[in-house]
Amino acid sequence: MTELEKKAVLFKKIRAFFDAQDLLEVQTPSLLNTPTTDVYIDSIVVATNQAIGLKKQQYLHTSPELEMKKLLAQGSGDIYQICPVFRDNEVGERNFNEFTLLEYYRINFDIHRLMADLSALLHHLGFEDKTVKMSYAQAFSQFTNIDILNTDFESLKRIALTHGLSIEFEWIEDLQMFLFVHLVEPCLKDIPICFIYDYPSEQSALARIEGRIAHRFELYLSGVEVGNGYDELQDSSSYQQVFAHENAKRQQLNKPFFDLDVEFLACLETPLPPCSGVAIGIERLASQLITT
């Protein structure tokens, strides 16, 4: 099979998996009027309609998340999408300005049910190994002896220093991620399929928080981060809070910050149904499929 054929088969299998469960395949706009506020993801800016005197600054989507959530708020039910996404300032062995995301949402699923469903998808696609599940705190205590949920910023900095690492961080969540990348991720290399779940609340992103924990998970295939899922926030005001917080952080880092996506917030005046969703990097997934 050529690479082209392999990718075509992969798409067919993904669609068959979701079609069998009655998810609706959707297509949402990729040219947006509002960029992402995510602190460490940069939208690619495009100037449109200049030659016809209607110059406008627009942005390529970095993920179809918000547009899909508008559909969920309008009662679409379970939906999935496979689409190219675009991110500025991402170049590396596994990072590209354009890549393909599979994003899907399941109504009334919590993250554990979604992880089980995703695990079934992986096996449907040809992964054979059993799935390992570990909470973020378990992963830290197992591989590093750090009690990550109960270690404050200053203590974490002292730990980073003992490993000869930088402590130049504005926020504890960035240092948590740094230590995870340095100390935990390399230990995940030997686990073919691994879910890490229940992140510290500081790393909630758009996931529901309960006490010290954000109901969020990541999928690692042989130590490579492939997917990110949430028990989704539901109402407009929660999203507004997160966007404003991200914008404040962008401002502190001297990065551009943006008007909030008022259209999205207005749309969520009718809140999302309880649901969980996940985004999977297709190229990373495919590369793991070929090597296994």
């Binding site: 991402e90 590396g92 990072n95 990348v181 340095h182 981060e225 990110n228």
Partner: peptide
């Protein structure tokens, strides 16, 4: 030299 960029975090070099 491996660039690692967590989905929700800043880029690191391992």
């Amino acid at each position: 030299n491996e660039i690692v960029k967590p989905g929700k975090g800043q880029a690191f070099n391992r």
